[in-house]
Design a protein around this nucleic acid. Structure first.
Lengths: 341, 341
DNA sequence: ACGGTTTAGTAAAACGTTTTACTAAGCAGC
DNA sequence: GCTGCTTAGTAAAACGTTTTACTAAACCGT
């Protein structure tokens, strides 16, 4: 900038105004033109560290999720990145590993780096820390995939309760009457609400409940497979299972394959979350799909909106998007007449 | 820092030296202790914009891949992030979409943001730009997943040639003699080398070749399925296929399922790249797995090494890691005796 | 022709560090 | 008691912006 100033014989201030579009009613058209042309010519780009130092803003947003290598999160990340980029922001991703201390460490790091906002999927037991981040540290925070009842905050989530109801209704319509729910022992809102949606639907249809809850850290492990295996052995009447997350379903499918249970004849399956393995599995697995693209758009646009609205806002940005039941072979009608003689 | 200085009656310089561990033989133990204790007490953290402005370094590394939502890349990203974080760096991810212009734009953005290094999977037709980035713009660049013969650069790649040979040998040992290769029409080194490895192995076994190359943008589309379908129809003798990438294999599996071809009886399958759908597919699909964890470690450690070694280096960081053939049911032995009477 | 207002522009401080070049005090050697 | 070296520490410039408060000139109405 100093060079431009010297070269053109124009003060640094003027140049700064022009770059920041604050030149209206201040600087003559000719000077503006001259400076803009020169900038174009030499390809000048402002030093963003200096901008960040001076303004306290960094034009970057951090996206913290449990595991960025999870296809659901990385798909969201990719869509957001695109929009953020167009708005002059960049996105920094990181994984919390569902660990509170690690999450706090990361937040601290990114605060020092002057990020403008946090889009965060808080780990278990993070309620107080999150509240603190929002209300004490006054950071811009958008919560994703879960929400907390005890204090107001911005969030974007799925309609988990309704999604679970859709799944149970799907089972019911396909003729199933012994519908099981396999969930996770957790207080996180999506897991709680998926369970509640299941319960409510079961109650409405006046059916029996079958429930299994795995420990959080068991979900992807052989231990989790064991639990599912035992659950099925002990409840032979079960004719359909709603899995509360894709990873649960995947471990479930391992057990089902191992036990040579036939889908959909012996057992119907619906899982939350779309994932390519469900479409490609034999038979293809039905899912409650999250609207990835819409979620991503709401998240990033909501966050940009918060950043654009100066200072203290009156209201919060809250959005719940519906999931879609995608019916595949795993949910096909039972043939009422038995085909065996 | 100014506050600390006032509070403790110690100059800012001294504090800076202590923070940056340059206090040895300069500042007395007592003062060091005093300052460190105070910093600990008040939880002071330096402003990184100011540091970045002053030093021209930002302690961040950008990781550019074709598509960050690809499970392979996001798995690498996650592992790298961990190590980078421990070393005081953070990683910014972004997707090139295999588009040259977009990639150039992103690079320009990140240069302005003073990133310390680029770890990059360059898109098609990026050779000159990459060379320019390294040799004209003097950026720290680590190339991932591919390399260029025409100029020296840092890279971490898979032993693609050998991987393809392993796959062909696997087919041969399982009794297959009509081994096909399904690849992509591309000059990128992994695709070229996988093909060359296939050819070399086929030549050594003195077998016929069957080859199909899809267009880059067809790989995930119904158009790609068509091509594979025709290929199989026109070459009924094929008894095994090596897919050069996971996405090719997935589209291939769609065709195979649709045509009700039996794996492994009618057709044996090996795909490059591990992916959970391969393990879960019925029957499970054999793969040449990339050593994700090792690749990630080499990438980030190599990059940190480059950043640590002051100024112009004599040599480049180059690494090729072996792929592992994971044998699953899709590659099982043919039963030589026909089981039908 | 005078005071007030608008227009077009600028000087200089500030943001929070790092780093260079400096000093003042103490001490050893002779 | 002088020289030169070491030790312990500091002053001030610099990094590249943004922004506040200012000015000088031109214009305008009376």
């Amino acid at each position: 900038m100093k060079d431009i100033s010297k070269e053109l014989g124009i003060s640094i201030t003027t140049i700064s105004f022009i770059i920041n579009k604050k030149a209206e009613n201040r600087i003559s058209k000719e000077v503006i033109k001259k400076v803009e042309d020169y900038i174009e010519k030499v390809g000048y780009k402002p030093n963003s560290s200096a901008q960040s130092l001076r303004t306290g803003r960094s034009k970057s947003i951090v996206f913290m999720v449990e595991d960025i290598s999870d296809p659901f999160f990385s798909a969201i990340a990719k869509e957001m990145e695109e929009i953020a980029f167009k708005n002059g922001y960049n996105i920094i991703y990181c994984s919390t590993e569902n660990d509170r201390d690690r999450t706090l460490e990361l937040i601290s790091l990114f605060k020092d780096r002057q990020v403008d906002a946090f889009i965060i999927t808080p780990p278990e037991n993070f309620e107080k820390d999150l509240k603190n981040l929002i209300y004490e540290e006054h950071q811009n925070v958008m919560v994703f995939d879960r929400y907390f009842k005890n204090f107001k905050h911005n969030y974007v989530i799925l309609e988990n309760f309704e999604g679970a109801q859709k799944a149970v209704a799907g089972f019911y319509e396909s003729g199933r009457r012994n519908i099981a729910f396999v969930g996770i022992d957790s207080q996180l809102s999506p897991l709680v609400e998926r369970h509640e949606g299941y319960l409510e639907a079961i109650k409405n249809f006046d059916l029996p409940t079958y429930e299994l809850f795995l420990k959080f850290n068991e979900v992807k492990t052989p231990g989790g497979m064991n639990a599912i295996r035992n659950f099925l052995n002990e409840n032979p009447k079960i004719d359909s299972i709603l899995f509360a997350t894709n990873n649960l379903a995947i471990n479930g499918l391992r057990v089902i394959r191992e036990k040579q249970i036939k889908i959909p004849e012996d057992l119907a399956i619906i899982s939350f979350d779309e994932r390519d393995v469900f479409e490609l599995y034999s038979p293809p697995i039905s899912v409650i799909a999250q609207p990835i693209s819409d979620l991503a758009k709401e998240l990033i646009n909501g966050t940009l909106e918060i950043l654009a609205s100066k200072k203290e806002r009156r209201h919060f940005f809250t959005k719940a998007l519906p999931g879609e039941l995608i019916v595949r072979e795993s949910l096909h009608q039972l043939n009422k007449e038995s085909s065996n003689p």
